[in-house]
Design a protein around this nucleic acid. Sequence first.
DNA 1: CCTGGAGTTGTCCTA
DNA 2: TTAGGACAACTCCAG
Length: 436
Amino acid sequence: MAPSPKAPLSIFWFRRDLRLKDNTALFHALRGQHPVLCIFIFDTDILSRLTEKADARVEFILNSLNVIQKHLNQHDSSLVILKDKPADAWEVITRNYNVKSVYFNHDTEPYPRKRDQAISEFLQSKGIAVHSFKDQCIFEKSEIAKASGQPYTVFTPYFKQWRAHLDEFSIQSYKSETLLRNLLKSRTETLPTLSDLGFSPAGIPIPEPEVNLNLIKRYAETRDFPAIRGTTRLGVHLRFGTISVRSLVRLALEQSEVFISEIAWRDFFMTILFHFPYSCSKAFKPAYDKISWRDDPEGFAAWCAGKTGYPLVDAGMRELNQTGFMHNRVRMVTASFLCKHLLIDWRRGERYFAQKLLDYDLSANVGNWQWAAGSGCDAAPYFRIFNPALQAKKFDPDLAYIKQWIPEYGKEIMEPIVDHTMARERCISEYKKALR
DNA sequence: CCTGGAGTTGTCCTA
DNA sequence: TTAGGACAACTCCAG
């Protein structure tokens, strides 16, 4: 860290908003009265929980920080990177700099909420002003709520309200990129390397943050076919904030209502987790925690490895294992298979996806897993059990996706690890018993 | 408070 | 081959 320049300054704290363009808190920081120093903290509590050392997400963050650093350097400024527990990092920062105010964007997940609360109290106790802003979603917290003020728990009425609120203001651009002259001038700091952080490259391709308008226009017709490039794959960029969700909505508004509604689903699940934080580890509908999930180590291992004998399930799991991505249609099929065919607790699947997905987001992952298990708000009815063979026939009719991920398909025959009809009946009767 | 309509993404069986 | 009802009732939400 640089030696103490005692001039008063503001700090902008990058978290999951790794961009200089259209960044709300950065915009407000740069319009403040002090020059702005940008920081990023590698949270050692989070890093130490990552068991896989070839983690593409750490790599993605580092790449994004390097892009930011290049731009900051053009303005004779530099990122300061810390690797510490956040509380300790802020202890160091406030000791080394004459910090007058701190700016960051909201993160409403349970852990960041607690963290930000503690850090804010610490900063305020030192007389430092804390300013935080909505940035990672269009509407958050209780902005979309029933007339009574209670949060919606059903998507359709939520979306109706969300859509009615969507105006110029809610998707305006905060042109932080035009204010970079207000950055603090500082000596260039060297960024850590991946190995400095204790990680190694994952060898996973990272999609560019490019918005393909034609793809969004055709989204409703193409999104369900995993062999087609029919989805934008922007999830990872929304996850880390390398694109602004407002800019995406601005572009998509003219193109596709279905795509817009998917952005609203993202807001919806974030809002649900904000109001019902227990739902990341417990069934949203408590009765579903009465299901006696099977402890089936072989079945779980087969599912993870993509060796269930159901081609679409296996193709999806192999795509996930090899690329850190799985097509959304296939996410539903694989999740349904684990919960319903194998009767394995949705939390185990959720944790596996959490380890593997480059675009992993707690609220969306938990929301969708609970949807698949039937335990979530507004979830699939329990008797709705995806038939993997039928799903393959409908959505991968020429087997292009299956053959892409299962090269031995057609040459070797793999017996299904569980019979569809038996599994279906077992599931319905077990759910029935639990929900009685 | 009451009431009626609706609820992301399915599947299976029967006629 | 295809269309329609059953699956299960319950809760949510708006008027």
